[in-house]
Design a protein around this nucleic acid. Sequence first.
DNA 1: TAGATTGTTAATCGATTAACAATC
DNA 2: TAGATTGTTAATCGATTAACAATC
Lengths: 222, 222
Amino acid sequence: MANLKVPKAPTIRRMPTYLQKLVELHAEGVPFVSTTVLANYMNLESIVVRKDLEITGISGQPGVGYKTDELIAAIRKFLGWNNVFEACLVGAGSLGSALLGYEGFEGYGLRISLVFDSDHRKIGTTIHGRIIHDIKRITELLKPCAMRLGMICVPSAYAQPAADLLVANGIKAIWNFANVSLQVPDDVAVQREVIAGGFALLSVKIAQLEAAKKNGEVRNVG
Amino acid sequence: MANLKVPKAPTIRRMPTYLQKLVELHAEGVPFVSTTVLANYMNLESIVVRKDLEITGISGQPGVGYKTDELIAAIRKFLGWNNVFEACLVGAGSLGSALLGYEGFEGYGLRISLVFDSDHRKIGTTIHGRIIHDIKRITELLKPCAMRLGMICVPSAYAQPAADLLVANGIKAIWNFANVSLQVPDDVAVQREVIAGGFALLSVKIAQLEAAKKNGEVRNVG
DNA sequence: TAGATTGTTAATCGATTAACAATC
DNA sequence: TAGATTGTTAATCGATTAACAATC
């Protein structure tokens, strides 16, 4: 069961958002960025950002901020996104296709270079520039690449078999978009994306706001 | 800035996963479920599940567990998912289409009943059973519904204008899938889905496992 | 010099984990 | 009765927040 517990998970989750904003600011030619700016953007307190950035080992200039380019490099290095992660994707349905179409991944060092499906109507066709391969050819195609990362976008019922197949072919990390919890060996990392989790939070937020309104509280609840 | 801070966020995020498993077990005719079973499924300790369920106010039977149907009802009620949430979606691109095709939402009480886009090639067509409407008709179509929830799936650059439009038309909660942080009034709830956050965590997990392997540690790191 | 910001230490808060009696 | 599990209280751990001197 490799749902590894990672220290500083909240900090790590915020990193890509810092990175995305920093890249934008860098493109605009902004040479320095302060935690105040990043905090405002993300509706956080600046101390949160300061503590978060600490983890990357970077140091800034008091009164000024951090060098934008250095900060970008530090975050990328911390996340291991300075080298390209080659990944394969299993399940070229609507979600899989959407992920294939997301250009943002390149900026995170993620390149989906192999795509598998079992649907014969899809096999051989091209989606967002990638050929869909027959899942039966996974060993033949995957082994030579020494690929470590696999993304699962198949229907829930096929997710565990897909995971087994990936593991059997040397994959060491699985990004799971299927709506089930996967069982994998201890030396394989799994990250499950539960988008309903976000909706659950939003539902509770809505209830909170409505309760606050009922009580005539207009002030910020958070 | 309505990125409300919700108490017990980790617990709330786990709720949909419990719910999904419970519904499955219920369909299989399992009358009682213990926290041990749920914990095993999710690779958690049972005490975590026990504490989580506490929040719903349900009580179980020592030595036996919780009545599956009661637990399902309690979680749904806690999340406000016993009534259907009508939602609209802006941006019928690949991600928007994928979300429209996700049947799981109905089980969470979420029904996407209105879809908008600005692309004239899409307007008037049907995706997964929903007609794509011209975003210009948003006021006309949204106002009569008294809809509270809006989903944003447009490219980053159009996300803030889309949010403004939703807010201007009475939307009180925004589920943001665009890769930017939105600014909204205090009485509007926002939930941003940052899928790169999951990838960041996975990247760190991979690094952790590789470091552990290097040190010859085969035991479970978590 | 004044204002802004970093870096660091300490305080607070909340989530997770442990322990165990009570119950089926 | 024995085994499993709940419910509750206390202990631990870690994340967030506060405070402030040092620096540009």
